[in-house]
Write a protein that binds this DNA or RNA. Structure first.
Lengths: 228, 228
DNA sequence: TATCATATGTGATTTGTTTCACAACAGGTC
DNA sequence: GACCTGTTGTGAAACAAATCACATATGATA
């Protein structure tokens, strides 16, 4: 094994490469490339050829599509463990969506050919990939159905609860999205996102300092997220 | 090989089981069960344990979720080659959605344990499964984003074009969905589906005889589907 | 520091969609 | 045939959300 390989220290190792040994471990260790992206930088551009198998080691990213009118539709927000470039990669030549860093992020990239080869030779790796792709796809589909049936207040509340509870684990956090991006995610206009946030502020549910949000009344916000 | 096995005649064989041989082929041949469902019958019920790996041999089905208020949200409509119970099956114990036959349908069922075992032992089968899951998930996600950004007229037009061009391959066909189900699919109310259909009729885009639809002006309908 | 572009914020108006109320019709069943 | 129950159909009123118009901040840059 390559003595310089640090994969055995990788927190994400068990996600896929738990059972690797011998030649396969070498492929991963010597073939992988880490890349760093600053906030706002593009990691994947819609329409480009898929060459790498990419997963997120740290940071936060958005997956989105741009329609012919230039309007962005955010598909999902993903953090490490969530995001792996699984959508499309086994069925398509080209990416069907773009990925941009919402916070400074680090990805680990492997050659797609190697991953395909290993998946074909190593059953437990293949099953791991199936499990993860299934999980990612389910989450995106079910979340999207959830959002779709909510009204504006419910959608904004849902987003805030998501950031607070799933990403930052704190009632106070800096929004990684602009108001416009929030609108792109939940399918409403920028003005209405702003208006809804102001409403929540007036209702005493939260405090707003620019991008910084402090959730004062989490219970109310959660119930708006669920039933609104 | 079991002399009674007819898998080699199955039109869907190459979807997954192209490269099977020996013991694996036996597992498929002797373990598979075909089931027939009449129009309206439930094939999979949300929340039940996933035991089988199921794919559609013939017919047409809807995948949907029922929310706590009892309202159905249709996730997708699938025909043979589209539908395989891939969503969830590798990541979950239980189905996250229900499946009901829209037309008389036949499924081929395999024991999930066998499929998992074979995928772990046969690389090309695993890659096939990855490819199909990826394709199915992509389609559902991208279609759903497409629908979301359309207005009512565009959504109804999209549905009609889908049935005409992707399912029945004819400008005249019997709608397999009630007005209410169409509404559940595209996320609008039954009344508005009916109203929109009436509008299309008044505009001379189509003729309606109950469930039978005849598209008179396909070009207009398509452009409504795309831009409306 | 001045300037520009972009993001945030608010109100009034218009549009799109749902809700409600009701009628006509079809298919099953007693 | 008479009676349900559910589906289809239409219109008017109520509501939600988008659009438009404008003001104010913020951040980058010359």
């Amino acid at each position: 094994m390559d003595p310089g390989c640090t994969c055995e220290l990788c927190e994400l190792r068990e996600l896929f490469f738990d059972k690797l040994e011998g030649a396969h471990l070498d492929i991963v260790c010597s073939g992988r490339v880490e890349k760093t992206f600053g906030k706002g930088e593009t990691i994947i551009k819609e329409g480009t050829l898929i060459r790498d198998f990419i997963y997120l080691k740290s940071g936060l990213v958005k997956l989105y599509r741009t329609d012919n009118a230039g309007k962005e539709q955010i598909i999902t927000i993903a953090k490490p463990y969530d995001y792996i470039s699984l959508l499309s990669v086994f069925s398509n030549d080209r990416y069907q969506y773009s990925v941009t860093a919402l916070e400074d992020s680090v990805t680990c990239n492997l050659d797609m050919k190697d991953v395909r080869k290993m998946a074909g030779e190593n059953g437990s790796l293949a099953l791991n990939l199936l499990k993860h792709m299934s999980r990612v796809a389910d989450k995106i589909i079910l979340d999207s159905l959830d959002i779709r049936k909510k009204h504006l207040r419910g959608r904004v509340a849902y987003l805030l609860v998501f950031f607070s509870q799933n990403v930052y684990l704190s009632p106070e956090f800096d929004l990684p999205l602009s108001r416009k991006e929030m609108a792109d995610y939940v399918g409403m206009t920028t003005e209405n996102v702003i208006r809804t946030l102001s409403e929540f502020r007036r209702d005493g549910i939260l405090k707003i300092y620019g991008k910084t949000i402090r959730i004062v009344n989490m219970d109310t916000l959660k119930s708006v997220a669920e039933f609104g």
